[in-house]
Structures are given as structure tokens and as C-alpha cells.
Design a protein around this nucleic acid. Sequence first.
DNA 1: ACGCTAATAT
DNA 2: AATATTAGCG
Length: 264
Amino acid sequence: MEWEKGLPSDEDLASLSYSLVPWNLAMAFSITPEKSRTIQDANRASETTFSTSSSTNLGVAAEEEDRVGSSSPGSDSKKQKISEDAAGVDISTAEEGDSGTEDLKLKRARLVWTPQLHKRFVDVVAHLGIKNAVPKTIMQLMNVEGLTRENVASHLQKYRLYLKRMQGLTSEGPSSSDKLFSSTPVPPQSFQDLGSGQGSGSAGHVGVPSMMQMPVYAHHMGMQGHQNHHRGSGGPANPYMMQQNKFGSMASYPPVGGGSANEN
DNA sequence: ACGCTAATAT
DNA sequence: AATATTAGCG
């Protein structure tokens, strides 16, 4: 449709995955290829189209209460034409209460797993192999600012369930749900060691079920997301930088060093 | 402290 | 429906 053209092509996004330098190795040489990407890298892929919840909004959804009288109709103010905004991003840590935008420590807004973010996740998981793909490590390697171990753990849990549920139905199309997941190629080794209790008969081995690649992008047509206000005072809890990752042939991307998006 | 699963909460 | 949080265990 319309919005699709604003998005990076599949290949564009795909390029990121391959050719990772053995992380520990990279570390040994103290190469610091990239700064942590903000959750935004992902989101702002499409802007030429909508400004509603997804475009301008970075990956995070803030809880908002727009109780402004009852003038809901005005929703047409902006249409297309939105193109800047780039820098105005903010992860809008849920405000409320007092000091609002305090740094770390306040509850972060719910993380939104955009296709890009998810892809990064999958890439990392794939490169780690089933053994090392644990929340902490994944989180570190993804190097996404503000991403917490819990975020990853939660997503990982779902992801695993998804993979598990996929097996045995080698020829089934993904249910309309699982959009996010079904949109990503299955890392060859992701499973193989999963619970497997399910198999009726053929529990022997796993043959990567090649699932279809639906165009899938999570759009909620519902008008739900709202725009962000900005707190005039202090900036949100994290430094933002957004950048469209344009690595045509980068050789590695591990975080390492300066980054420090999250700590404990 | 971490990780995992299942259940439950928001 | 998507995420987060918690419980209970290894």
C-alpha cells in the first residue's frame, strides 16, 4: 500500500545480520563500531505516511491520557508532509507523579518491538546460538539503549514459544497472529533443542520450516497512540540519537565499551 | 544473580 | 494483543 514505500527494503534491513565479528574478539581489540542505537532507529522507518502513533513515535509507547474536553474530531490536522521531527524524538518516559523525566529509575514506557528491533533481536539470537542466547547476553549484543534484560527476557520467552509452536506444523502458515515473528526468517539453529515433547512420531530432528514471509508490519489501525508532548524541562531519561542504520557492508556491530545503555 | 517456564497483571 | 511482572524452581 502506501506506507510500504517509506520503509527500508527487506534487504536493507537484512544486511545487518551477517558478518559479525566474534564479539569477544572484537572486544579484545577494543573496536567500537557503533554507538548504541536508540530504540528509535527502528521506528522512524516510515514517516512519509503517517504521523500517528507509529511514525513520529519512537519505539516506545507512553501511557497517555488525553482527556481534553471532548474534541476528538480534530484528528486531521496533519496528514502527509511530515518529514522532520527526526531529532525531536523522545522515549517519553511515562510521566505522572512528580519529577517526571528523571533519569534511570523511573518506570520506562512499554517497549514496542518494532520489526526492526525484532530483527536485531533475531540476528543476535541467531549469532549467539542456542546456548548463549540468554537475556543478558542478547541485551548486551543488541546494544539498544534503554533496553533492559527483562525486556529481552520477556520477548525471548514469547519468541521461543513461537518457534516451538511452529514445529511439527511444517506446512502451516502462521496464524494471523505472530505477525512480528512470522516476518522474520527463522534462525537455523534457534531451535533444535526446544522442548520437543510435542512431536507425534517425527521428533527426530528439525528441519527448518520455511515459513512464508508475509509483509507484516504491525499497524494498529485504531487510533491509540498519541503524540508526545514534550516536557519543557529536562530531557527524557535517555540520550537519544537516532540514525537510520545504513551499513552496506559493515563487518561487525557489537557494542562494547562506551555504550553503556543500561547498567544495573 | 541469572535463567527458565508458566501464570498472571497491566 | 503486546508487554511486564511474579512465582517457583534449578
